[in-house]
Write a protein that binds this DNA or RNA. Structure first.
Lengths: 150, 150
DNA sequence: GTGAATGCAAACTCTTTGCATGACT
DNA sequence: AGTCATGCAAAGAGTTTGCATTCAC
């Protein structure tokens, strides 16, 4: 994920917040930047840790409130890979997105994209009674490192 | 899901438990039957409620312990549709399985199957570095009832 | 009879909420 | 100035664990 893309997402998010009548407070902006800089599926605690390292601690409650707001505005996606914790990542206005693969051995989470998968899901939308608004795919397996270690 | 299928899964599970050296205790068997009778994605609390209705209450801790054991033996799948609660459903030895679609309005969870989707995921296994052991697909949208109500 | 499984209650983790203080517009 | 947002601490929900008792083999 390039710096240019990060910056544009951060700008987009700040603009959307302002339009919706929300303030660009310090803590909120720092959460935004943390999500943009990592780019993939962070937990609230990871965001908290990252900000503390930077010397810009933000209370956990504020992090959760910021994430909830960003989610309601469609600026982040809430991702759940089955660990019992919520993860958040930037939602790109282009609709471009990825899915996740989790190592059941070490817990590593990586991203992947696949056009055939998206096509299959697109086809489903026409077949089912539900009006499909979003989809999540999570793969489970062993990462290269754990495979080598075994 | 037919009664015959339920019975065979229950039998299979009891046999697997015995082979692995675990006891077919009353509470454990009741949890097994609850999962078999419902067939799709129950939470620990739902299992608890169902058993209490039947007059066969089982402590929540025992339900969690039973589910954990069944999961480790590959007899149930742990499913997470992003509500922050774990759901469990029978894992069929045939490998036959389904995925879930969640109504973001009322929370209803339904099952669906799709061959094209499975094919797309099968193709991915060859492309990625991970050794893929399992996959979950969750769709989000509005169910027919909520669409009509809107 | 013996070891495994249960049930209760306490502990833990993640997340949300109430309320007084402080900060953005 | 006025209001929205923050931070802390307490409350909640889901899940796990310790320990004495009970039960399956």
């Amino acid at each position: 994920m390039s710096t240019a893309v990060e910056a544009s997402w951060t700008d987009h998010a700040l603009r959307t917040l302002a339009t919706a009548g929300h303030r660009a407070s310090g803590p909120r902006t720092r959460v935004l930047e943390a999500i943009a800089s990592d780019g993939c599926a962070m937990t609230a605690h990871e965001i908290s840790g990252l900000l503390r390292e930077r010397g810009d601690s933000v209370g956990l409650a504020s992090i959760y409130r910021a994430l909830d707001l960003l989610d309601r505005l469609g600026l982040v996606h809430r991702v759940d890979v089955g660990e019992g914790v919520a993860r958040y990542e930037p939602a790109h206005p282009s609709g471009e997105h990825h899915h996740h693969i989790v190592c059941d051995s070490c817990g590593t989470v990586e991203a992947f994209e696949d056009a055939a998968l998206e096509r299959a899901i697109g086809g489903l939308s026409e077949r089912l009674d539900f009006a499909i608004a979003a989809h999540d795919v999570t793969l489970h397996g062993r990462c290269p490192v754990c495979r080598a270690a075994a």
